[in-house]
Amino acid sequence: MEAAIDRIMLTYDLLLNRSTAASEEARAKVTDYVRTLFEAGEKDTHRLTVCGLTYLRQLDGSTDHIKAGYTGL
């Protein structure tokens, strides 16, 4: 689980230039999320990593097509 969290944060920090406080907040949130997945039975480090990255991207709105400027036209 820790390997997945470390990989998530390394990748996420490369994607976004964020403050140390924001990065620590993101780590706390993704740790709780990954722990929930792990306790539910997901043990694959790669799946945990992908799910954690997806979770953080949804939290910061970077997967929101409207915020990204997509209008559908």
Rank of each mutant, 00 (worst) to 15 (best):
His46Gln: 14
Lys67Ala: 15
Asp60Phe: 12
Met1Lys: 11
Thr49Lys: 04
Asp44Thr: 07
Leu16Gln: 10
Ala3Gly: 04
Ile5Cys: 04
Ile8Phe: 03
Gly72Asn: 07
Ala68Pro: 07
Asp60Pro: 02
Leu59Cys: 11
Ala22Ile: 05
Ser19Met: 06
Ser23His: 06
Leu37Phe: 10
Thr11Leu: 03
Thr54Lys: 15
Met1Leu: 09
Arg47Thr: 15
Thr20His: 04
Lys29Pro: 04
Thr63Pro: 00
Asp64Val: 07
Asp13Glu: 12
Glu42Cys: 06
Gly69Asp: 03
Ala28Thr: 02
Asp60Ser: 09
Arg18Thr: 01
Arg7Asn: 09
Asp13Ile: 09
Ala3Thr: 12
Gly72Arg: 07
Ser23Gln: 10
Thr11Asp: 06
Phe38Val: 05
Met1Glu: 02
Leu10Met: 07
Asn17Arg: 02
Arg18Trp: 03
Thr45Ile: 14
Thr71Pro: 00
Ser19Leu: 08
Arg57Gly: 06
Tyr12Arg: 13
Ala21Asp: 11
Thr49Pro: 14
Ala40Thr: 11
Thr49Leu: 10
Cys51Asn: 15
Gly69His: 08
Val50Leu: 06
Ser19Phe: 10
Val30Tyr: 02
Arg47Cys: 10
Ala40Ser: 15
Gly41Thr: 11
Ala3Cys: 03
Lys43Gln: 15
Thr63Asp: 08
Lys43Phe: 05
Tyr12His: 12
Arg47Gly: 09
Arg47Lys: 14
Leu14Val: 06
Leu15Asp: 14
Tyr70Pro: 08
Ile5Tyr: 09
Asp32Trp: 00
Asp64Trp: 15
Gln58Met: 13
Leu56His: 07
Met9Ala: 04
Ala22Phe: 07
Asp6Glu: 13
Lys29Asp: 01
Tyr33Ile: 08
Thr36Leu: 15
Val50Cys: 04
Arg27Leu: 07
Ala26His: 05
Val34Phe: 01
Ala28Gly: 01
Glu42Asp: 14
Tyr33Trp: 09
Glu24Arg: 15
Leu53Ser: 01
Leu15Ala: 10
Arg27Met: 05
Asp64Gly: 11
Leu15Gln: 11
Glu25Asn: 05
Val50Ala: 06
Ala28Tyr: 02
Cys51Ser: 15
